[in-house]
Amino acid sequence: MKGQVLWVFMTALVAALFAASLLVGPAGLGLAESLRALFTGQGDAVVLVMRDIRLPRAILGLLVGASLGLAGAAMQGFLRNPLAEPGLIGVSATAALGAVLALQTGVAALFALALPLSALAGAALSVVLILLLAGPRGGALALILAGIAISALAGAATSLVLNLSPNPFAAMEIVFWMMGSLADRSMTHVWLGAPFILGGMALLLSTGRGLDALTLGEDVAQTMGLNMNRLRLSIVFGTAAAIGAAVAVAGAVGFVGLVVPHLMRPLVGARPSRLLPAAALGGAAMVLAADVAVRVIAPDTDLKLGVLTALVGAPFFLHLIWRMRREEA
């Protein structure tokens, strides 16, 4: 697909999935009835369902998906490594740990921003660790191994904290933090997450030019006037803010950041400045589609988003490893 057509198509796809997310739900409302309630605020209970239950869910699906796709593309560009992805390299897991710590220590109850900030701090910590352990010259193996170690550690710490909680439900929520879900979120979560997600995404989108230059190699890029330190800081804080806030409100949804950039590359080309916005749209479409699917497949149970994204993403991941092996051989 060329030029404008692709962008129009992607935007239309995201808009259609956003609408589907608003119109699909266990309450089984009529189309006209739900749209009237959403836009005019007429019809009591239907308005509540549309504006307070489905709208925040659709908005969060859009934001969480976009931030995951964008962060995946940015990390792959910066690390020049096709396996970089917030879920696989432990960023989502440490963000979840940060969020769980804020909730279980009670800090999140004292001031609301503590939840996204603490998740952001967790995410930032792991991005820095990853850059140290498997920086641009670290290679795929170092990246994945460091990611496995960080994910395992953060996952274990999260489980420990939740198991020690005096709340009997907390331990049951380990799966939410590892798989992610948008069920029964409210506008509160949107207000809490959106500023950080949008800020982080703006920072990541601003790295497009720098990442373009980086494709020529670090030395060439620096002679072209690229400020590596600034680029690094933008990647770290952009990813931490976007992923941290997304995980704080929706849990860790895996594989979106891996699959989407690879799907978009053949369509927009490998140039990061074009890939980044395309990956954001693709990520939004993937998470919105997954969130509609969980409601269609199992309307009365909270099927986790990560289940569907992993069903698509994990085989894709295996395929990538297979291809890399063949190239190395």
Partner: peptide
């Protein structure tokens, strides 16, 4: 202690 399960009880 906090839990996501109980958040539904304070949903707007």
């Amino acid at each position: 202690g906090a839990s996501r399960s109980e958040e539904i009880l304070v949903h707007p």
